[in-house]
Simulated assay, not measured.
Amino acid sequence: MSLSAETEADNIRLDLEQRSFYIFSILATQINRAVARTYVKKYGRPENAWKILAVLNKFKALSASELNQHTTLEMDKITRLVDVLVERGFVLREQDQKDRRKTIISLSAEGKKATRHLEASIATMEREFLIVLSADERESLYDLLTKLHLRAGQIFGDQR
């Protein structure tokens, strides 16, 4: 059976503009750029610093390697971003009391304030983005995204 016949049989669209990987990539880039613009407009560069703030807001205190597990950022970028965020007073870096070799990163009071502003902006963008879907469609989307995220972990693993 040819690739074309297989694709037609399982209803998988592989034409570039309809390919899920391509569409997800474009959407992710557009969303990341929109959030980064919001962050940079208020706080300046680096534009990916918002990712560190958002993750720390969720998980409170993490090591650099744990930040890596929750972002798409490489370790060297995380280190540089954390350095900048420490200089700006947005995050604190402290030695782990249980494992003295490990450094724990957390939001400072100023970082929490910046994150509240950032999270409000992201929530507004998310609502504006998803408003074209009905409540049922949004629930279906969330279910589908969860299913695809789990599948991606099964077949691609962590390929950073």
Rank of each mutant, 00 (worst) to 15 (best):
V132E: 14
F24L: 14
A28H: 12
G157D: 10
K51V: 01
R100H: 07
S121F: 05
I12F: 11
E119K: 15
T146N: 08
A54N: 11
R93G: 05
L107Q: 00
E110G: 01
R88E: 01
E110W: 02
D96I: 00
N11T: 09
F21W: 13
A34W: 02
Q154T: 14
I105V: 05
S65K: 13
V35S: 01
S108N: 05
P46N: 06
K77M: 09
S140W: 05
S121K: 13
Y142D: 06
I104T: 05
Y43I: 03
V86R: 10
K41G: 09
R45H: 12
S20R: 09
E8N: 08
K41F: 04
L3M: 10
R116T: 15
T29K: 14
E137V: 03
D96T: 00
E6D: 12
T79D: 07
A152E: 13
A9H: 10
L118T: 00
N48C: 08
Y43L: 08
I122E: 01
E137K: 04
T146Y: 11
H149M: 04
A64T: 02
V91E: 00
Q69V: 01
Q159F: 14
V40H: 00
S20F: 10
Q18Y: 06
R160C: 09
Y43M: 03
D96F: 02
I78Y: 00
Y39A: 00
L130A: 06
Y22R: 02
A120S: 14
F24G: 07
H117K: 14
V55R: 00
V55G: 02
S106A: 04
A28G: 11
A135L: 09
E47R: 08
V55D: 00
T124I: 08
V132H: 08
E119A: 15
V132C: 08
Q30V: 13
F24K: 13
L107M: 04
K147V: 11
K77E: 07
L56G: 00
H70P: 03
R93W: 06
L118Y: 00
P46G: 02
G44L: 02
M75C: 03
Y39K: 00
L27C: 12
L144S: 15
A28E: 14
T103E: 09
L141S: 08
I23W: 07
I12L: 05
R19Q: 11
P46T: 01
T146C: 09
Y142V: 14
A135P: 09
E8Y: 07
S20D: 15
T124W: 05
I23F: 06
A5I: 04
L81C: 03
F129R: 07
G89V: 01
A5T: 14
K58A: 14
K42F: 05
R101W: 06
R151V: 02
I78W: 00
V55C: 02
K147G: 07
G44K: 06
K113H: 07
M75H: 07
L130K: 06
G44H: 03
S25V: 08
L130M: 03
V86K: 11
N68Q: 12
L145E: 08
S4M: 09
L73H: 01
L27Q: 12
L130G: 09
F21A: 15
R160V: 10
A64K: 12
L145H: 09
I31Y: 05
S20K: 08
R88Q: 04
V86P: 06
